[in-house]
């Protein structure tokens, strides 16, 4: 399956991940990711029909907290690390489209 991983696939994934790759990086990553996925063929090829997926090693359930207000950060602390803050808000360059 991973032999099918193409340079276009890698370019598409880079867009999804918001990374710009140079042509050289595209080539390198395509080759390296293929290598890793080839190694992963050992599990991709397994028949695990009926085996449950484990997202968590221990079966904790219903971990909740009481609906009680806790101290928030001060606005200065919130904005302290902001690359650009204006009018008490985080400023960003224009947004191209609405949220999906």
């Amino acid at each position: 399956m991973s032999a099918e991983l193409t340079r276009d696939d890698v370019a598409k994934v880079a867009r999804l991940a918001r990374l710009t790759l140079s042509d050289a990086e595209l080539d390198l990553f395509t080759e390296q990711l293929r290598g890793i996925l080839d190694h992963a063929e050992d599990i991709a090829a397994l028949n695990l029909e009926g085996v449950e997926a484990t997202a968590h090693p221990f079966g904790l359930t219903n971990v909740v907290r009481a609906d009680e207000v806790r101290q928030s950060l001060s606005r200065d602390e919130v904005l302290a690390a902001a690359p650009d803050a204006r009018e008490g808000r985080f400023a960003v360059p224009r947004i191209l489209g609405e949220a999906p």
């Binding site: 890698v10 994934v13 990374l19 990711l33 991709a44 397994l46 085996v51 997926a53």
Partner: peptide, 26 residues
């Protein structure tokens, strides 16, 4: 990040990420 994005993306989830979760169970 690239590898993980690919493993989660539509069409590959079951073959890679989903399968890895099952291996974990085993």
């Amino acid at each position: 990040i690239m590898l993980g994005t690919y493993a989660l993306s539509a069409g590959y989830y079951d073959a890679y990420y989903g399968q890895a979760l099952k291996v974990r169970t085993q």
